[in-house]
Amino acid sequence: MAFTDVETAQAHDAVNTDPTGEDLCKLGILYSTGQGGTIDYVEAHKWFNLATLMGCEAAKYYRQEISDEMDSFQISAAQRAARDWLATRH
């Protein structure tokens, strides 16, 4: 799934406003595929975790897919990053 530059910018902008689960899932896809930069599974996992919390079913599948490519330290880092992001939102 490829995103346009506009879609990529919208996904990043949504994080600073009122993101939906789909917005966060889109960020996960961007980071997991390296679109617009390098592949970052920790960052992708973080966004998939958050998207899942917001009810995005597709994010569960994507999170599992990249988990298979990660070690336990990376998964822990992603979970910690998701918790930190949530803490700054409230």
Rank of each mutant, 00 (worst) to 15 (best):
T17F: 14
Q35F: 06
F48M: 06
G36L: 08
Q74A: 11
E65R: 14
L24T: 00
Q35C: 10
G55C: 02
T33F: 04
T38L: 13
M54Y: 13
D23K: 00
A14P: 09
L24K: 00
Y31L: 13
D5I: 02
K26D: 09
K46T: 06
L24V: 01
L24C: 04
V6P: 00
C25L: 02
Q79R: 14
N16Q: 08
L27V: 01
V42C: 12
A77F: 01
P19Q: 03
A81E: 11
Y31D: 03
L50M: 11
W47Q: 11
G37N: 08
T20S: 15
T33M: 14
K26Q: 10
G37I: 01
Q74E: 14
H12C: 01
T8L: 12
G55H: 05
S76W: 09
E65V: 15
N49I: 11
S76I: 03
G55L: 06
V6C: 01
Q79N: 13
I75N: 03
Q35K: 09
E69H: 15
P19C: 13
G36W: 04
S32L: 07
L27W: 03
S32I: 08
L53C: 10
Y31G: 04
E7D: 09
A81M: 14
W47V: 02
S32Q: 11
V6D: 11
W85R: 11
A11S: 08
T20N: 12
R63V: 05
E22C: 01
L86Q: 10
A87W: 10
K26A: 13
R83K: 15
M70R: 14
E22Q: 07
Q64V: 07
E57K: 12
D23N: 14
K60Y: 04
I39W: 07
I39D: 03
L27M: 08
K46M: 06
A9T: 02
T88S: 14
D84W: 02
Q79C: 03
G55P: 02
G28Q: 04
A82M: 07
Q35A: 09
A87T: 05
R89K: 15
S32G: 11
M54G: 03
Y41S: 06
V6S: 05
R80Y: 07
G21F: 07
L53S: 10
R63N: 04
Q64P: 00
R83A: 12
D13P: 00
T88H: 15
H45M: 04
R83Y: 09
A77W: 03
D68I: 15
D40T: 06
F48C: 09
R89S: 08
T17A: 15
F48D: 10
A11C: 08
A59S: 08
E69S: 15
T8Y: 00
T52V: 05
Y61A: 05
R80H: 09
